[in-house]
């Protein structure tokens, strides 16, 4: 197990290095730059712009910029934002709670609903419920998240006025119920795709387990169907689900970006979009690294779980 972990860690570090090179190159080679936000200030001269570029270190060769950025990164200094000069790490960690709040709520919803729908679908395989759930999941996976978000806003905020149209809280109202009201719509929108995925995985896993010998044995022993399903099948089918939670992180992060945009949620995804618009390289790179780390932790977590469950896996 220890060597497996070490191996995975080394692989992860290599991956992160690759991610950083790809990200850095893509960003810095793209046309446009952070200076354009200052360009339209009246009286701004080319000379002054060059001075700003020099202060920001933008006039140095790209490999050198990368090297400086990376060597500071490993010491924990992620640089400062071009927009407000705050340390990148502080900016990102300031936004993470909002994103996690949204993602965790969505996962909770997805697990609860998805697992229920999946189990019921598997147990009543071929029933109308199962067919509807299958079609429903496929449709849910095909709906553009932002469009669904807009429709939710239109119905529940604009027409019915039940829910706020965006933001994480009403300013000045720090109550739990206020936070909760703001959370409902974006969490449901983000959860939609996840519910679909979870229900499909759960159904598949249940069916796999049901067809295995020990279930037949259990049935043959005369245990009630309910007990067979819940005690044996369900518990065994849940294991791969935990793995899924780890593997679903990239999808969830991408979904969070879109959801945060539609609901003006002050999280990391929104920050990414804003920072990209301003070419705030340190922040964009920081977010890319943080999400890559999250993704890697997710898959590492998934691997460890499956390794722990399956003694044959020794990578």
């Amino acid at each position: 197990m220890a060597s497996f972990l070490l191996n995975r860690l080394i692989q992860s570090v290599i991956l992160l290095a690759l991610v950083s090179v790809i990200g850095f190159a893509v960003l810095h080679l793209a046309p446009g730059g952070p200076l354009s936000q200052f360009a339209l200030i009246p009286g701004m001269t080319q000379e002054q712009l060059a001075h700003i570029a020099h202060e920001m270190g933008l006039d140095r060769p790209l490999p050198l910029q990368y090297w400086e950025w990376v060597s500071r990164l490993v010491t924990g200094d992620w640089g400062h934002s071009y927009r407000d000069n705050q340390p990148v790490l502080a900016i990102i960690s300031g936004r993470l709670p909002a994103t996690f709040e949204l993602m965790l709520t969505a996962i909770a919803l997805a697990v609860l609903l998805g697992v229920t729908v999946g189990v019921l679908g598997a147990v009543r395989r071929g029933s109308i419920f199962d067919s509807l759930a299958t079609v429903g999941a496929m449709v849910a996976l095909s709906i553009p998240t932002f469009w669904f978000g807009l429709i939710v806003i239109y119905i529940f905020a604009v027409k019915l006025g039940w829910l706020p149209a965006g933001s994480r809280s009403t300013v000045g109202d720090g109550s739990f119920s206020d936070y909760f009201r703001h959370l409902i719509a974006p969490a449901v929108v983000l959860a939609l795709v996840e519910v679909a995925i979870w229900s499909r995985y759960m159904r598949g896993a249940m069916l796999d387990v049901i067809s295995q010998d020990f279930i037949r044995t259990a049935r043959a022993k005369g245990l009630s169907e309910k007990s067979v399903m819940l005690r044996h099948a369900f518990r065994n089918a849940l294991l791969p689900m935990i793995e899924l939670a780890g593997l679903e992180l990239p999808t969830l992060l991408g979904g969070a970006l879109v959801t945060e945009t539609v609901f003006t949620w002050p999280g990391m995804g929104r920050l990414f979009l804003d920072s990209l618009g301003y070419r705030d390289y340190p922040v964009v790179m920081g977010i890319l690294m943080v999400s890559a780390v999250l993704v890697l932790i997710g898959s590492l977590f998934a691997d460890i779980l499956s390794a722990a469950a399956d003694p044959r896996i020794r990578l």
Binding site: P31, G32, L35, S36, A39, L40, G277, Y278, R279
Partner: peptide, 13 residues
């Protein structure tokens, strides 16, 4: 049309 960081960079200036 271009994203702001491109439009108001060298493209405009």
């Amino acid at each position: 049309n271009l994203p702001p960081a491109v439009m108001w960079g060298d493209y405009w200036m």
